[in-house]
Design a protein around this nucleic acid. Structure first.
Lengths: 138, 138
DNA sequence: TAGTAAAAAGCAACATAGTTGCAAAATCTT
DNA sequence: AAGATTTTGCAACTATGTTGCTTTTTACTA
């Protein structure tokens, strides 16, 4: 495990609990994003659904993970890069959903493009989700 | 009403029914996108939820409306432009969600930008959702 | 325009997602 | 180690979406 789960929790002033360790561990040990359902399945069994919801919510608030909207109406969560601080979230990269393996990737190096919006529209945040075939499924 | 509801239904070889007329009418008489919940509320009362779901599904299949993914996990639907044919859907424009009035607009004139993806990734569809303040709320 | 086949609506029941309040258990602090 | 604070798990509830089946409506044709 590249980064220590406990350290991440401490750095965000979160108490260290079993569910937080396990859920954060899941994010660290695989490349893609996870939906709430994935976590319940992969978590090795027994977690109360409520605990998972609340843990994810806490992680999002602390800026440890961020949400990714997808077309199939299931919110997915992915780890944030280090420069995400609480309340100040840098999520300016593109997301990629593979239609074959259904994994969602954060393309951290692909920056959200600029947009010319019609007069009067002011955008504060732009979300880009690309769909297609990933490098592993080709 | 700019366009005749019945005509649109006929052009897509759909039978003309009360619910289809009313739901399609809702889309025509307002600029933004509608979520399933909006439709149930605005439909002037009594519609079975199942009927609304099935009607929306039918409209999507026929290419009359398209779906817009949003961050809050509620699928919204909006009218397609005329050049959407069944099975061959042109949805290359950007969507805009106003954080104030919560209306979702189709910015038909703002084309989805090109993206340089990492090697190995092949994208078939790109979805762009901008968030901010719309021209009416400014 | 009446009769009929096909399609859609409505109903019931079920499945999945997500939320809230509260009591029990675990964690942190000193 | 003990008390205060968090977090967990449970139960109940709401919202959202789906499926099968029966009744009603629509479109077609004679």
């Amino acid at each position: 495990m590249a980064k220590d789960v406990k350290e991440i929790l401490k750095n965000n002033s979160l108490s260290i609990t079993g569910s937080r360790e396990k859920i954060l561990g899941l994010f660290l040990e695989q490349p893609g994003a996870l939906a709430h359902g994935d976590i319940e399945k992969r978590a090795g069994e027994k977690f109360d659904r409520v605990t998972v919801y609340r843990t994810l919510q806490t992680f999002v608030e602390k800026g440890i993970i961020h949400t990714i909207p997808t077309a199939d109406n299931s919110i997915r969560y992915a780890l944030c890069k280090d420069d995400c601080k609480e309340g100040h979230h840098h999520d300016h990269h593109v997301h990629f959903v593979c239609t074959q393996c259904n994994i969602t990737y954060c393309l951290d190096d692909v920056v959200t493009p600029e947009l010319k919006l019609p007069k009067g529209y002011i955008s504060t945040h732009i979300e880009v989700v690309a769909e297609g075939i990933c490098k592993n499924c080709k």
